[in-house]
Design a protein around this nucleic acid. Structure first.
Lengths: 129, 129
DNA sequence: ATGAGGGTTCCAGTGACGGGAAGGTCAAGG
DNA sequence: CCTTGACCTTCCCGTCACTGGAACCCTCAT
């Protein structure tokens, strides 16, 4: 399989696939003409990576998870720890965003949104609360 | 005021303040020795920027908001539009993160987290659901 | 004179790619 | 045989909002 077919199959852009090779996540073979040749195992890894990235894992987490995936002697505790730490990050981000949303929607509700200059949003940002 | 005092007053790192000057958000004066000299209006702008950034507005949004802030003839509708668009982005992000959190916590709950290799997290990422 | 503690500029790096240039390869059609 | 168009390759720059660090200047106290 060439990179275009793999891109279509995995849903990952060709650029991303090349990037993943660059940083050593996958190691496809090469044909005589220099084209990358992807075996099933490469495609499988890419699907793994795509799903892990979709769950928000960083590339370094993905590297770790992939290594655990390939290691038949892994302890599931190691996987779980990585996942739990990531979950903690996600929850922290959600909390931050919820705080922003709360403040913002409050301010938006208070703003007339007409052609007059008075604006509680700017008033708040300006510190005159 | 020199940059160090401004940094302390606003809570913004000196590096960030220099960056904001670089990209034209503020235009502090210069002393004879080349040091930046910040007037109250500069400090005020920086506080504005700090608060807007804390609400998650992009730098370009901040530029827009600052321009509106300075424009006595603005329409609050313009401010509100910027804020609403940002709120939409935030809500989209929250939705994404909530979806991730749901899947992740599900998988984490299903994982024994012991020294055995069996792991529903990896099984899911591997596509064998 | 020296040292500490400001300040300055400029360059490189972050994460995870995306855009685009310049060029090699391949299969099909005229 | 030649061309065309769709692939593929590498390489470098840009993103966003900074952060770190090097190399250097200024000021004041000892």
């Amino acid at each position: 399989m060439n990179i275009g077919d793999v891109a279509e199959n995995t849903g990952l852009p060709a650029k991303t696939i090349r990037y993943y090779e660059d940083i050593g996540l996958i190691k496809p073979m090469r044909d005589g003409n220099g084209y990358r040749r992807f075996r099933d195992q490469d495609v499988h890894k890419l699907n793994f990576l795509g799903r892990a990235r979709a769950l928000g894992f960083t590339i370094e987490d993905c590297r770790t998870l992939l290594a655990l995936y390939e290691d038949e002697t892994r302890a599931s505790a190691d996987v779980k720890r990585v996942a739990r730490e990531h979950l903690t990050q996600i929850e922290a981000k959600i909390a931050d965003l919820n705080a922003m949303r709360g403040t913002l929607s409050h301010l938006i509700d208070a703003c007339a949104g007409d052609d007059r200059p008075d604006c509680p949003i700017l008033k708040d940002l300006g510190g005159k609360s």
